[in-house]
Design a binder for these strands. Structure first.
Lengths: 323, 323
DNA sequence: ATGAAAGCGCTAACAG
DNA sequence: CTGTTAGCGCTTTCAT
């Protein structure tokens, strides 16, 4: 069986308390004892049991991360930085892909609570999950409002939408179409749409209902060109949709950027590597990640911090060629 | 404070054991008692503490996942399916990004052991980590040999390399260059290179040393065209490198596929969405994920299963246009 | 400077 | 059908 603290104590000829002391570097220990203990640890190949420790300490150093799907450049980059930053502070990430399904998200949320996570970072799009109302559970929501009282970290979606649409207008587009996910109230991403609607005389938005199905997205986009053949600009609310626009345009022999200009949204590293010509709005993904983690850790430590309820980070237009 | 089992018991007027019984649906309980208990659970908004449960059961239902970086379409897709499949079997994923650094991987591995994970799935590229030699810790390695005795799940890398290079030859390429990551012994990915070397008269392989730096990759690729201006075919050992080839070719006004043909490797959904014209070798990512999880769970349950030490899944050429 | 004992929240014998 | 008790592995008063 696995060695436990008691085994180490016996082998070193000391009490469990003493072993615990050297493990945690707490209290006074003679150099000699410390050596004996450390030798025993080596010899037994002992690893402290963090489950037992967590039970006692009422702290797991686990952070639950709920997102729609890690298999998306924006979320995977976000997750990378969240994991990194968390690790820097001694926290571990439990990964949950809700796939946008309410029931999955619910069961993940309660699973995380049962596992005594110290906090959660949620960037999924479902509301009304009771578990989030669990009093005193530190939560940070990324880029959408989860529930009153839960801080939101995100980027300036209205500004991003404005930058995108204004750029298309500046480039001479006359008929600009917007593509967005399903309209949900109070989602900051809908502010991109608001900006579009504020800047364009007769706004037309196509909604992609099944964000997880690229072919369905392509079908919707083909409809744009059938129903609005005069379209000369598209503002897509994320880069994957923008990529699908480019693909469809290519199928239809529509030249980008001459006949059609396309602006995406997110500007993740992966998309920029694979599709460097895509003009897009870059979200400060790393900063969103870091800010979220730090805010969450502050909540966990109950630092008296000034209860910041919404953090809005700046975005940037990357003018790369498709618009 | 958070409600615990004892509080539920008190409120329901029964013993803790009884509460535990209804929680776990074990043993005989009268319907009346069950109701009382369930009401108390509701009323107290009680969530069982899985940490305490794990401590007792000597089982956490945690699986550690170590990969170089989740911010890569291949790994993020893999991680999605691994997480999904694990969740289907009641396991949770702890995400670790080693960033290819030995020390990070080491500390992640021992963190996971301290946290009593029931098993680990490792798709990182470092060898000689002692923690992996921890006897009886179930491990599955994805696409590389970790240590003797640890099962490997992967796809047919030699066949993939062969398909790629043969395709380039069939398309008329005379001077085919291969791009790969740093040469490491016993990495199945090196079998792609082996296939290339077996099929080409005078093989030339460029090594990308810093896989995490796209600009460095671009620099190396530019060197190819300086040093071998007659290059008419490139087999890149992953799609991101292939994408960088396309980008550099574009900079240099080299037409793909007329003057240069490029074949990538992986064929993840994300890359196929963003760069649908890329000809590549598709790995069966979902199957790799599922197989790994199932094999690991078998190990965890000590199912007597036939100790399969290497599982090789088939690959497929996706002939999309860049070659 | 070190040890004994209690307890974190839960479950599983074992009784009854 | 239900309760009592011990203990999972660790940490921490409180003694000494």
């Amino acid at each position: 069986m696995k060695a436990k603290l008691e085994d180490v104590a016996k082998l070193a000829g000391v009490s469990p308390t003493t072993v615990s002391r050297v493990l945690n570097n707490r209290g006074y220990i003679s150099e000699k004892t410390r050596q004996k203990v450390e030798n025993a640890i080596q010899e037994l190949n002992y690893y402290p049991n963090d489950i037992a420790r967590s039970l006692f300490k009422q702290r797991t150093n686990f952070i639950g991360l709920i997102l729609p799907t890690i298999n998306n450049p924006f979320f995977s980059e976000l997750a990378l930085y969240i994991e990194n930053e968390s690790a820097n502070h001694g926290f571990k990430i439990i990964l949950c892909n809700s796939l946008g399904q309410l029931d999955k998200e619910k069961s993940y949320a309660s699973m995380l609570i049962r596992h005594q996570v110290d906090g959660m970072i949620v960037c999924s799009y479902n509301r009304g999950i009771e578990a989030y109302r669990n009093p005193k559970l530190p939560i940070v929501a990324i880029d959408h409002y989860l529930s009153p009282g839960i801080p939101v970290v995100g980027s300036d979606n209205y500004e991003g939408g404005k930058l995108a649409v204004q750029h298309l207008i500046n480039q001479g587009c006359k008929s600009i179409i917007h593509i967005n996910g399903p309209a949900e109230l109070e989602t900051p991403a809908q502010k991109r749409r608001k900006a579009y609607e504020d800047l364009v005389k007769s706004p037309i938005t196509y909604e992609i209902t099944d964000l997880f199905n690229e072919e369905a997205t392509a079908v919707t986009i083909r409809r744009i060109f059938e129903e609005h053949p005069d379209t000369d600009g598209i503002f897509a609310s994320d880069d994957l949709m923008a990529a699908t626009c480019l693909k469809v345009a290519n199928e239809l022999n529509i030249n980008v950027p001459d006949q059609l200009k396309v602006v995406g949204y997110d500007g993740s590293q992966t998309v920029m590597s694979l599709l460097p010509q895509l003009t897009t709005i870059r979200q400060p993904i790393k900063e969103i990640a870091k800010t979220s983690v730090l805010n969450l850790i502050d909540q966990i430590n109950e630092d008296p911090m000034e209860e910041i309820m919404e953090i809005v980070l700046p975005v940037q237009l990357l003018n790369n060629g498709t618009a």
